[in-house]
Simulated assay, not measured.
Amino acid sequence: MHILIVDDDTGLLDQLKTALTKKQYEVDIAENGEQALDKIFDVPYDLVLLDIMLPRMDGLSVLNEVRKAGIDMPILMLTARSDVQDRVKGLDHGADDYLAKPFSMAELMARIRAMLRRKGNRTPMLEAGPVCLDTAKRQVSLNGEEVHLTAKEFSILEFLLHNKGSAVSRFNLAEHIWGEEFDPFSMSNYVDVHIKNLRKKLTPHGKNPIIKTIRGIGFIIDEQV
């Protein structure tokens, strides 16, 4: 598997390259956005680790250019802890996931493995029963009719559909959507409110909701809906 790491922190670049090389990944590096874009247009990478704060061209601009060119390689955004809006923008503009700095190497490796597993079965369409989510067009439909979701609702639904058939805990869902800014004490009802609104929008009259609650754990979109 061929991975590109893009970051202007040379110390972190060396650390990540060494760790990934030990795991038998083939690794290239880039220290600015322009260099990253040149490499991405030249090499069919299996995965890109892309920092947002970059010289010459920032990570979000690189992401936009890559997606505009129709390149659908998995991209994991690396963000600072406080850059919540950048994380949301990244997901809304086609990033597959994000990881807040500083992060543990074990968590990074787990994210990489998960993204590479999904790559083999990568499709722009995610479906469950009458619900269809188009990851490329950022659109959701119910029985063929478009459903308008907020950015947060879309991200929650996309994350649950990527994990269809598996339980997702409230904490993991909140961490994925709100990142390190999520406070379990002051924001404890945020997830439930968004799930409630999603159910209203995605449940046909008289039908069971596709998003089911697993008491004491979290939520699941079951294969059998």
Rank of each mutant, 00 (worst) to 15 (best):
I177N: 04
S169Y: 00
S155V: 02
A167H: 11
N143K: 15
I195M: 10
L133H: 07
D183G: 02
R170C: 01
L157P: 01
G165H: 03
L198W: 14
V131N: 05
A174Y: 00
I112D: 02
W178D: 07
F103W: 09
M105W: 09
P124M: 11
K119W: 03
K101R: 06
S186I: 09
D134Q: 10
T150H: 03
S188M: 14
D134F: 11
V131A: 04
L161H: 07
R138A: 08
N197I: 11
T203N: 14
S155W: 09
H176A: 06
L142Q: 01
M105P: 12
N121V: 11
T150N: 04
A100Y: 02
H162W: 00
G144D: 09
M105V: 13
F103N: 09
A106V: 13
L126A: 06
S166H: 12
N189Y: 07
V147G: 06
A110T: 12
G165N: 03
E153T: 08
F171Q: 01
R117M: 03
W178L: 00
L160R: 00
E175I: 05
R138N: 02
R170P: 05
K164P: 09
S155N: 08
G165E: 06
E181W: 05
S188K: 09
D192Y: 12
A100R: 05
F154T: 03
I177E: 00
M187D: 12
V191A: 10
M115P: 05
M125L: 15
F154R: 05
K101G: 08
T135P: 02
D183L: 06
V147Y: 08
H148V: 03
F154K: 09
E158G: 08
G120I: 07
E181L: 12
P184M: 11
T150L: 06
G129W: 10
V168P: 03
E181M: 11
R117F: 10
A114W: 04
I156C: 00
I112R: 01
G120H: 11
N121I: 00
L142C: 13
Y190M: 11
G120K: 08
I112N: 03
G165Y: 08
R113I: 10
V140I: 07
K152M: 04
N172M: 06
F103S: 09
G144V: 05
F103A: 09
I156Y: 00
I195F: 08
E175W: 07
K200I: 14
S104Q: 14
R117K: 13
E146M: 13
M125H: 10
A100I: 07
A167N: 10
N172W: 03
G144W: 04
M187V: 12
F159V: 09
E158L: 01
V140K: 02
L161D: 04
E158R: 06
K152C: 01
A174L: 07
M187L: 07
L99R: 12
G179L: 08
N121Q: 15
T203E: 06
E146R: 14
Y190V: 13
D134N: 15
R113F: 09
S169N: 10
A128N: 05
G129A: 13
F159P: 02
L202T: 03
